[in-house]
């Protein structure tokens, strides 16, 4: 076991736990945001750099601070390690930089993007970005592609998190999905269009943190916050059959896996990730196909949940009011 302190909160976790996982055990604002890490996908993380944190003490054995910021999703904890996340101005500044880089070529077409309202990049930019933009250059563009008959790839929106690549590697045995070209021009591709044909390929849509991979059966049907999420299940030979239905009136507009507080697929009772198959996702669009369990609570702080941004704004206002009162009291 290792004792680690993150922003002043101490917790004991098994050796080999990453800083992010330790922070998630503590919970709250001190959890570093993650755009590419996905706990149920092996070798994910390390790419986007949003989870950079400062290790001010390496361990009890070797208390030296780490010379550079480290990625919390890959760095494992040591006994006695001390980490700063939101208490380090250096971290906050670096993260602001990462947000700016991620948005540099992002089309910001949220008004027409199906992901809007449950988009990790929207949340990240609101919470960790700066206002305005400093670039004057035309954004990078790619043609839109079908990668499989039910999945649309908007490469313009992609942040190169590699999550879909890991899904292809780990869930779809005949892998035809990867990255083409280099650097600025790198793009996700199936190489031969529509070459993904696998019962599990739809899970790419669920892991995509932005609107780069979208469900063609749901495209432009509705804004997500106008749909009602329900927990439901059915007997499926292929997958666990436990899903979230996104319903409007009697119509099932969309079927997804059940995502938890960090926007990742929840595990089923047997402890395995609840990936769902393409039949459940794309074919079962009648309420009668499903056993409804009840309304689904959306934890994720996005516009569909409890007006999170409003609360944030309120919090900030409260804080400044308190500061004002404090200053007044001080001046009196």
């Amino acid at each position: 076991m290792a004792r680690v302190t993150i922003d002043g909160h101490t917790i004991e976790v098994p050796d080999g736990t990453t800083i992010v996982e330790a922070a998630r055990k503590i919970g709250g604002d001190i959890v570093p945001p993650t755009m590419c890490y996905y706990s149920t996908l092996k070798t994910s993380g390390g790419y986007c750099r949003t989870c950079l944190v400062k290790v001010t003490k390496g361990s009890d054995k070797d208390p030296r601070p780490m010379p550079k910021l480290v990625v919390a999703c890959r760095q494992t904890v040591m006994d006695g390690m001390e980490v700063q996340n939101i208490t380090s101005p250096e971290v906050l500044e670096a993260r602001e930089g990462v947000v700016e880089f991620l948005l540099l070529n992002h089309p910001l077409d949220c008004p027409v993007c199906d992901q809007a309202g449950e988009c990790d990049l929207q949340d990240l930019s609101y919470e960790h970005g700066d206002e305005g933009t400093r670039t004057v250059f035309r954004r990078r563009t790619f043609p839109m592609r079908d990668i499989g008959d039910k999945i649309k790839l908007h490469m313009n929106r992609c942040i190169m998190c590699y999550r879909c690549v890991k899904v292809a590697e780990q869930l779809c045995p005949e892998r035809v999905h990867g990255v083409l070209n280099r650097g600025w021009d790198a793009e996700i591709s199936t190489y031969i269009e529509k070459a993904i044909d696998n019962e599990w390929s739809g899970n790419m849509i669920d892991v995509c943190p932005v609107g780069a991979l979208t469900d063609k059966t749901f495209r432009f049907k509705s804004r997500v916050w106008f749909t009602k999420p329900l927990d439901a299940h059915r007997d499926c030979d292929v997958c666990c059959g436990r899903v979230a239905l996104w319903v409007s009136g009697d119509a099932v507009l969309r079927v997804t896996g059940r995502k938890g507080v960090y926007h990742e697929i929840e595990n089923t009772e047997d402890g395995k990730p609840g990936w769902i198959c393409n039949t459940c996702r794309f074919e079962k669009k009648n309420l009668s196909d499903w056993v409804i369990e009840g309304p689904r609570h959306i934890d994720r702080h996005s516009v569909i949940s409890q007006n999170h941004y409003e609360q944030l704004k309120q919090l900030k206002q409260d804080l400044s009011r308190q500061k004002l009162i404090g200053e007044k009291a001080h001046n009196n």
Partner: peptide, 12 residues
């Protein structure tokens, strides 16, 4: 031209 494009600060 030569960035591999894995990490956002370098790619962008």
């Amino acid at each position: 031209h030569e960035s591999c494009g894995q990490c956002s600060p370098c790619r962008e």
